[in-house]
Structures are given as structure tokens and as C-alpha cells.
Design a protein around this nucleic acid. Sequence first.
DNA 1: TTTGGCACTCGAAGAGTGAGAGTGCCAGCC
DNA 2: GGCTGGCACTCTCACTCTTCGAGTGCCAAA
Lengths: 345, 345
Amino acid sequence: MLTERQYAVVMAIVFEYIHTGEPVGSRSLSKKYLTRISAATIRNEMADLEEMGFITQPHTSAGRVPTSKAFRLYVDSILEGKRQKSSELADRLLDLKRQRADFEQLLVYSSQLLSRVTHTVALAASAPLAQVRLERVEFVSIDLYHALLLVVLQGRLIHQKMLAFPCEMSRETLDEIARRINTIASGKPWDEVRDGLRTFLLKELDEVSESCRLAMTEIDGLVSAENFRFFTTGIHQILKLPDFQDIGRLQAILSLLEEEEALSRMVRRYSAKDGLNVVIGSEDPESGLGSFSALFSSYSGKGTRTVLGLIGPVRMDYEKAIAALETVWDGLYENGNNSEGRLRD
Amino acid sequence: MLTERQYAVVMAIVFEYIHTGEPVGSRSLSKKYLTRISAATIRNEMADLEEMGFITQPHTSAGRVPTSKAFRLYVDSILEGKRQKSSELADRLLDLKRQRADFEQLLVYSSQLLSRVTHTVALAASAPLAQVRLERVEFVSIDLYHALLLVVLQGRLIHQKMLAFPCEMSRETLDEIARRINTIASGKPWDEVRDGLRTFLLKELDEVSESCRLAMTEIDGLVSAENFRFFTTGIHQILKLPDFQDIGRLQAILSLLEEEEALSRMVRRYSAKDGLNVVIGSEDPESGLGSFSALFSSYSGKGTRTVLGLIGPVRMDYEKAIAALETVWDGLYENGNNSEGRLRD
DNA sequence: TTTGGCACTCGAAGAGTGAGAGTGCCAGCC
DNA sequence: GGCTGGCACTCTCACTCTTCGAGTGCCAAA
């Protein structure tokens, strides 16, 4: 539906706008990018493109600003092509991996790295999948009234909760409870076993039923929801950008970043399918991104869903940002079996 | 060294400045606060006070702005008196406590509450004391090459680390290692046992020495440093304040909040003694607080040091903020044995 | 020692102006 | 028919000038 020339004009406008932040005029386009077409011709094309919704004018007699539709076109064109990996970034990630941190920690370090390199807010998240399998349950007795409940999930994912019992619970009792739970539930997807387990326990283990019931509801809360754990870094990075001297826009994004609930909804919505996704804030007012864009790389494997993302201004350097995210993401998962947080070296 | 009247003038200037944010003129002082003294007299006093360093003029023919010296005077006068507790705040905290969360979680909730009420950034931190006693060490075997190392410290403080072993480690071996460590080290302050333990282990447990040595260095890193764990909330709160429409100041504080290292240094420096401390940023340029002030409430008990704090603009409502912090802090620790994160109800 | 009065200072806000960038449209050219 | 150069028009931005008001400092009188 776009002629080749119109496409070229849109791309040039987006490119120029990303690099200057100012409305783009026909003359500068003709001079810098499309030297074979005159400014007047570009003006005509621009009028059409404006009608089609790719660009707008902040006011008469100003240049054109790309709309989210144009950004989408631009981003898709980048995603289609191949990006060059930054070998420097890959090296620095390798350094991180040598520090033998666990996977979650590595994820945090990676996001810090990303944030510094791209001058955006980086976001890392991991969540157990709903259908994750329960490996086993274990109690670590702390004193007579307290125990640490460890839920070991598939893929070495561990959730834990300190439990307070209303009555004395000996180590032996706890071990026995854990043994019984494991006999029934180990190896099964948690959402399948949960209900059966609860009724079983409440009926069979009458002598310790009160504590058991308590423990059960706790376990429930631990894994039942597909809750992301979030790590964000680099808020100060976006303050450096010339775009956000105006506080109002910052407020929106900071509220979003501090509100795990909203953040979780946003991430779940836009990282639904594995791989790299680009969300342009103004494309969907309900995203909560406002005048920001986000990139998400996500992957579901053995029990966990992992997301690594960037949040930056709509006119961020997508090419660089996408390349950086891909480089880091691939670095995280490369060496085959190293994925899923394996710690072997 | 200040006459009674000079003192009154300083207090009135600070009070008015806190509530308006504008330089305070002699006329409005005479009208609003010191009705028995004429503006001309106040002008004379102001000239003296300026010489003494309590107030400054942003430019000739503007009102006076209090300096950190004046703020300090004001804050001290508040701390001397008694504040009224907000019963609403106390009630909301009680609600939180009923949710049976562990102490650290409760601390986080409390700080969120504080942030909302005072419109400042709230900061919660907890750290094991250097001389904390080791209760015991436990390994939870995950698979042949991985185990979760749990270090149980005095006061139910738990540190943990996922360990990767370079060779197979059976559950029995791990239990044996833990048993030996516990025999020697349990009940002793960690910094005392550490060195002896290391040499003991490296010599005695030769057959599993490589893994042991690894485990030991990990334990070391877990407790050796007095590392605060930080939780901050409410960054978006300070964006609402009229003072910080200027990005530069925000940048300083956001960098500080995102840099755990610097934050830790700052907190350690200003919450050295138990109780409530007020830091006025401009009083000490090295604080990193810039044009912000901070309140810290801190307490060291059975193994942990806990800090709850607020960071707000220098001209924050200290009276309200101090009262709020005190209310929440007392709420956290009241009911005697409920302190230290006891979970009984 | 305190007070009223007066001249002076300075910044904030508003109006006016010119420069510059950009557009839309028209008429001519390939 | 599509492309281009030219021209009139529009709108913002930055700058200057002016006015207004709040506030001071100082002096002389009570």
C-alpha cells in the first residue's frame, strides 16, 4: 500500500527523528537522505503520508514527526534484517558468567550491563511457569515454632517461606509431613496436585492438622500464582536523555516501575510469545508505557519463564538497543546445556 | 548565643519556608508570626542572622532562605519536644502485622506505608551485625552437583547461596560436612570462627577438600561483610513535589538510590547510633544527599541491624515526617518479644 | 531600641519583534 | 502526468524592553 518512495521517506523521517529528536523537514530529508528527490516532491509525499497516519505535524509550518505506525514500520524493518553483534558486549557478559553466580544473579548483572550500554532502564524478570513440576518439598527446622519451607521446583527453581506454627513442631514431625507430601506430589505439575494434596492432608494428618493446613496454604501462595520477580536498574539513565526534562512523562514510567502489579501485567501481555518483542508505548495507551518503548526478550523453559527487557524513549536507537539485547540474551543462553541456570563450568 | 527573639525569627523563617518554598520576607513574618515586632526590626535581626550564617539571600531584594544551620536548629527543636502519634498510621501498621509476614517483609510494607503518607522516598535496610552468632549451617542437596547452602544466624536470620560443586557430592557427604562445621562453629560469632574453620577444614577434610574449600569461601562471602539489604520505594513520590521540576537534583538522588554501595556507605555513616537521626544533605556535601534530607531510625538487636528511613527535600515537613517515622518504628517493635521478627501471634 | 518612611534593587511576567525553518500551492518543464 | 523551483504565508523560538511588585537598607524620629 506504500510505494517504494513513500516507504523510503518514512524510514528516513524515523531515522532522522531518532537521531535529532526534532521534527523533520522536507528540505533536510532531500539534502541528507534522498538526494535524488527534490524537497517539493518530498513535501507532496509527506502530505499523503500524513493522511495515511504515518506522520504528524506538531503545528503548521513545523516539520513532521513520525507516529507509532511509522515506528512500527521502522522496527519491523530492523527485525527483519540481521544485526551485528557487539563483540565487546559479548566479552563483558562472558566475564560475568565466569563469576559462577546463579542464574537469577546473572540475569541481574546482565540487565545492569544492558542499561549502561544502551542508556535505558533495564528490566529482568523470572517466574515459574504455571505447569511447573514440583520436585520436592523440604522443611528446615529453625526452632520449635519456626521452619523454613523450601519448595524445590523443576529446573532448580527454589521458592521459600518462613513458617510460624501455632504449636510446637518437632523436626521429626516436619520431616514426616514433607515425606508424605513428596510421596504424593513429587514430579507432578503443581496446579494438578494442589487440590488433591490439600484434602489428603487435612484428612489424613489429623494429629497435626492445624499446622498442616497452615503450611499448605503457605505453599499454595508460593507457587499458585505466576508471579514475576522483577529487577530493574538504570532509572537514572533516562534522566540523562534530553527528552525527559519534562517531569510529567517520567512520573508515568516511574509509577509503572515501582508498581510490581502493573509491571507484571505489562510484561505478561507483551512477552507472551518467546523471542524478541518490541512494544511502542503510544501504540497502546493501556500499556502504561506512555511515551516510552520497550523491548522484551523472553523464553520459557524447564519450569521457568525468563524475561529480559529494556525501556527507553519512543525515539530510542532501536537498532543499537535490539542488537545489544540480542547479544546479551544469546550470551546468557549459549553453551547449550548452560541454559536454565546450570552452574557447571 | 542567639537571643530569644533571634531564635524566634529563625524558627519562623524555617517554618514559613517549609510551607511555602519561597524566600521569606520581613513583612510577612511580622504579619503572620511575630505580630508584636515590626518589619523593620525583623529586618535588623535578619541582617545579624545572615552574618551568623543562619539565613541567606538568593539575591538582593529577595526574602531570606534558611541555611542548613537553621534547619538543624529547627529539627533539633522538634526532636526535643514530644510528637503526637498518628493513630491512623498506627492502625494501618497493625493491619500489616496481622498478615503474619516475616520481619523483612513487614519492614518493606512499613516503608511503603511511610512513603505514601509522607510523600518521600522510603528506605528500609537490614544487615547482619559483624559479631552475629552462627547458629548452624545446613546443606539442602538439590542434585549431585548442586546444593543450597543455608547459613542460619542468630535471630532467625537466614542467608543462602546456591552452590555448584566441581565433583559429585552426595547428600551424606554434605551432611557430614555440615555436621563437622556445626560442631566447631555453632554458637560462636562468625568473625571469630571463620579463620579457624577454614584452616581446620582445608586440613582435615582432605578427601572432599576441593568442594569444601569452595563451600567455605562461599560462606565467607555470605556473612563476612556487614552488607545491608536495601528496599526502596516511593521514587515517584518526590516527582510530585514542586521543588524538583529541575532534573539535575533528581539525578543525584536517583544515582544514589540505585548504587547500593554508596547507599550502604551513607546509611552506615548516619545511622551509627541507635535511635532517630536526621541528616540534612547540604550540611555535609559528602553525604551524596545533595539538596535532600534524610531521617533514619535504626536499631541493633540479636544479630541484626535494622534501619528504616525517609529521604525527602530539605524543606520537607520534618514535624510530620518525624512523627510518622516514629509511629511506624514503634509499631514495628512494640509488643515486647515481637521484635526481631518473631512470628508468634 | 524600636519604628515608619523612602529610595533603591532585582527578578518574574508580559508584550513586541525579527529571524529561521517549514509548509502549501502554483506554474512551468521533462 | 509526474517532478521541480519559486514564492507567499505561518508558526515558533529567542531576544529585548518594560512594567510591576516584593523586599531590602538606611535614616531620622519616637
